[in-house]
């Protein structure tokens, strides 16, 4: 088939469609009137829920810190230090998340396709890059329950070894995840599976799309 025929075929098909295509003015009026706001509110609510959950979590951690420091006893050192570390990591994660939401809001779809798609995929990558900070709190979940009052002096060698292995392996795991949680590793099958398994299929798609975009721009 000749080039012109493809264009003609397209034209003829859509000329027919154009004649029978009608816009639903009432629904569009509603959409631009209240529903645009309502739909946006639904989208925002989804993100807000996440923020509220983290804030609630931070409030609990903050309250625990407050009460344990106002009534300070040295036996609470492990607890205070662990909760403070978890608190700091979550504050940083929340700050990054809000920063990304503000960035996303600034992206104007009116720009040319390759620029906007590049900005959108970079935003997704940046979210992944910042999310890795959450891994750093893992070791502290294995230390907050310890107390100077009984650890290590009142426990047997078996428990000390168990505790060392537990905290050591969580520290290694968190270091390993933090180090390997990179965009470069998105190429590796195990990382793609891990990300996809935790609901990040869109990020895997974004990576494939980013490659496609780079290729598209330069070849």
């Amino acid at each position: 088939m000749e080039d012109t025929n493809f264009v003609m075929l397209w034209k003829e098909h859509y000329e027919k469609i154009d004649q029978s295509l009608a816009i639903n003015k009432k629904i569009i009026r509603d959409l631009t009137n209240q529903k645009a706001e309502a739909v946006m509110q639904l989208l925002i609510r989804h993100k807000k829920r996440g923020i509220i959950a983290v804030i609630f979590y931070l409030l609990i951690l903050g309250a625990l810190l407050f009460f344990s420091t106002t009534d300070y006893k040295s036996e609470k050192n492990y607890f205070i230090f662990s909760i403070a570390a978890i608190f700091i990591v979550n504050v940083k994660a929340l700050y990054d998340y809000i920063k990304h939401l503000a960035w996303a809001k600034k992206i104007n779809y009116n720009g040319n396709v390759t620029d906007i798609q590049q900005q959108l995929t970079k935003l997704q990558f940046s979210i992944i890059n910042h999310a890795k900070i959450m891994c750093l709190q893992f070791p502290f979940f294995t230390t907050f329950y310890l107390s100077n009052k009984w650890f290590p002096q009142e426990v047997g060698m078996g428990y000390i070894i168990f505790q060392l292995i537990l905290t050591g392996s969580f520290t290694y795991l968190s270091y390993w995840l933090f180090k390997n949680h990179t965009i470069e590793n998105l190429n590796k099958k195990w990382f793609r599976n891990m990300i996809a398994g935790s609901g990040g299929k869109s990020v895997v798609k974004a990576m494939d799309f980013y490659k496609e975009l780079e290729e598209f721009k330069h070849h």
Binding site: I17, A22, I23, N24, K35, A38, L42, H46
Partner: peptide, 15 residues
Amino acid sequence: YFSPIFEPLLELEDV
């Protein structure tokens, strides 16, 4: 997110 609107915004008669 988009469930509030069920009717299509662009309607096409059978062509």
